[in-house]
């Protein structure tokens, strides 16, 4: 009974936040930039949840998530340019390709432990980036501009930012719900056991290779999905922007900041860190280039040195203390 009440309370809060997010664009009609920052926040909530699955739950430090993101972006864009295919189909093709790449790559390197897996993913990501930088068919270093179509749902193109806002909000919510579901599921339990003691998990009869691959592939799907939508939003993709390792790195920083292996962590991290970085960049103008990264670096250093559990654990502790105070 008491649990039911708690859930209702929690649900009510989430419902209020959702209503606020749905109504927010009404107040931002003259502030396209703020709307843009919101969209980027949603993008990173989704990408960070994807990283959270493979890194936070299954404990495999992947620096290749931006490659899956780029595969999504490039696939749908190429299909749109050459076959005039709707991105709604391109989106699924992109996810399928990213999933296959993740499966093959994961099959080869997921047995590597700790640092080795991390550096192997970096090497793979760099190879893909270098190949794309030199591959004329995909625009090489110049990248691809998306052909401008009639603004429509069919082409996933609109002249205003508003529809994008709702689409990215939806994707962020879906990926968070997905992670929430996995968090509560048996697979979530297996992922966490693999992270804590992989051989121990094998000794419980868990097919650790299968579950690591599963986490990797699902993670790649989310990234590719976001990649397609991002390309539709930005209308221009190139290896230097889409395959920048900083995309994966930012995800890691966001997850670490918010709280590793928690559902709320990536949301908290993205909501705090992305606007902060954007704000510094704006505040310091053109000369402020680079400051956002310095601030990221400083925040992460402070987090790993003093609060490696992330901000979410601070909030949880505060809540506990408040409850204790209320009780007494």
């Amino acid at each position: 009974m008491k649990n039911g009440m708690n859930f209702f309370k929690k649900g009510k809060w989430l419902f209020l936040i959702l209503i606020a997010l749905l109504l927010l664009p009404n107040f931002l009609k003259d502030e396209p930039y703020v709307l843009h920052v919101c969209i980027i926040v949603f993008v990173y909530v989704s990408l960070a949840q994807a990283w959270n699955l493979i890194g936070g739950y299954a404990g495999q430090i992947s620096f290749v998530n931006h490659t899956f993101f780029a595969i999504g972006a490039y696939t749908s864009t190429m299909l749109l340019i050459y076959l005039n295919l709707t991105p709604w189909i391109g989106l699924f093709v992109g996810m399928a390709i990213a999933g296959c790449v993740a499966y093959v790559l994961g099959f080869q390197i997921l047995h590597l432990k700790g640092h080795y897996f991390a550096v192997a993913t970096i090497a793979f990501a760099e190879i893909v980036k270098l190949l794309f930088l030199n591959w004329r068919g995909v625009g090489a270093a110049y990248g691809l501009s998306l052909p401008l179509k009639m603004p429509s749902f069919y082409y996933l193109m609109w002249s205003s930012k508003l529809p994008y806002y709702y689409i990215f909000l939806l994707v962020a919510i879906i990926s968070t719900i997905l992670i929430y579901t996995i968090d509560k599921s048996k697979a979530g339990m297996y992922f966490r056991s693999i992270k804590q003691d992989e051989d121990g998990a094998k000794h419980k009869g868990i097919d650790t290779r299968y579950y690591k691959l599963l986490a990797f592939v699902i993670s790649a799907w989310i990234c590719a999905l976001v990649g397609t939508l991002y390309a539709q939003y930005i209308l221009y993709i190139c290896p230097r922007s889409c395959m920048d390792i900083m995309i994966s790195t930012k995800c890691i920083l966001i997850v670490l900041f918010g709280g590793l292996g928690t559902v709320a962590g990536p949301v908290l991290g993205a909501v705090i860190l992305i606007p902060l970085a954007e704000y510094t960049r704006i505040k310091l103008g053109g000369g402020g280039q680079g400051w956002d990264y310095i601030i990221y670096g400083l925040i992460i250093l402070v987090i790993v040195l003093y609060q490696p559990q992330g901000v979410y654990s601070i909030l949880r502790r505060c809540k506990k203390n408040v409850q204790k105070m209320l009780r007494s």
């Binding site: 890194g55 404990g59 430090i61 700790g114 640092h115 991390a118 790195t249 890691i252 920083l253 670490l256 590793l260 280039q289 680079g290 400051w291 990264y293 310095i294 990221y296 670096g297 400083l298 992460i300 250093l301 987090i303 790993v304 040195l305 490696p308």
Partner: peptide
């Protein structure tokens, strides 16, 4: 920095050195 991170999980040490990397790289950049 690193003294406090001995025996930390891999991810934490990677994040710490990555943070140092960002600070140094973009410090010079700025």
């Amino acid at each position: 920095v690193m003294k406090r991170l001995i025996d930390s999980p891999t991810l934490i040490t990677i994040a710490a050195t990555f943070a140092l990397s960002l600070i140094i790289r973009y410090g010079f950049f700025v």
